[in-house]
Simulated scan of single mutants.
Amino acid sequence: MTTPPPEDSRLLSLLKLFRYYKKLGEQAMAQVPEAELFQTIAPGANSISIIVGHLNGNMRSRWTDFLNTDGEKAWRQRDQEFEEQYNSREQILEAWETGWQCLFSALEGLDSQSLTQTVYIRGQAHSVEGAIHRQLAHYSYHCGQIVLLAKCAAGNHWTSLSIPKGGSDAFNQQRFNAPRAEGHYTDNLK
């Protein structure tokens, strides 16, 4: 895995945020019994499995040949992404990983000059940086859905992925009494 040059803090920051959301989704899904990955909470709602299928399709479409072709590829079957595609946790995690690796391969090949180029999504022009931010918002939205569904499925067995309820004072006391860490809040995510 390569990373952009250290002088390009915008790309490094974006990569760290994408890695943060990937890790958040993985930690949430790890707490869910396999059968619950396929459950919905209401008629017409999506399961974790379906959300992963949609993310996989979107990521592969948007990030394949990112700088040169429209982000909505002719081969993408978006409507099918909202139908159950997988039969096991392993298949879900494989689709999850495939989508994210497509994204990381595209982003890690960029430099600061790439950010001002124009790319197209469904025929609409975006700066590269704008397109990246668009996808970051989209993926964080779906990762939040995964966390909510996982928390519902795990019930009392849920382990918080953030500061647990009632734990803010202890967290702040520990944080403010510790030596200050350098850099961005996601620096510990690789």
Rank of each mutant, 00 (worst) to 15 (best):
R89N: 10
E83D: 04
T116Q: 15
L103E: 05
W96E: 05
Q91L: 03
E83T: 09
L67F: 13
G109S: 14
V147A: 03
G71H: 13
Q101Y: 02
Q80I: 07
A74D: 03
W75H: 08
G144V: 00
Y141P: 00
A95P: 09
S112P: 05
Q91E: 14
H138V: 00
I146C: 06
E129T: 10
L107D: 11
N68M: 02
Q135H: 05
H126V: 01
L55T: 00
L55M: 09
H126N: 03
E72H: 05
W100A: 06
Y141N: 02
L55V: 01
I146N: 01
T69M: 01
L148I: 01
V119F: 07
A125K: 14
H138T: 00
E81R: 12
R89L: 02
T64H: 14
D65V: 07
A95W: 14
R76G: 15
Y120W: 03
L149N: 06
S140T: 01
S114P: 04
W96A: 09
G144E: 00
F104Y: 08
E94R: 06
T116N: 15
S112E: 08
F82D: 01
G144D: 00
R122G: 14
Q91F: 03
D65G: 15
Q113S: 09
R62K: 05
A150D: 00
N68Q: 09
R134F: 11
F66E: 05
I92A: 01
Q135Y: 08
M59I: 02
A95K: 09
L136R: 13
F82Q: 03
N68C: 04
A106F: 08
E90K: 00
L115C: 07
C102W: 04
S105R: 13
V147P: 15
I132P: 07
N87A: 11
E81G: 12
W75P: 11
N58F: 10
A150V: 13
E129C: 08
L149Q: 04
A131S: 14
L93P: 10
Y86R: 04
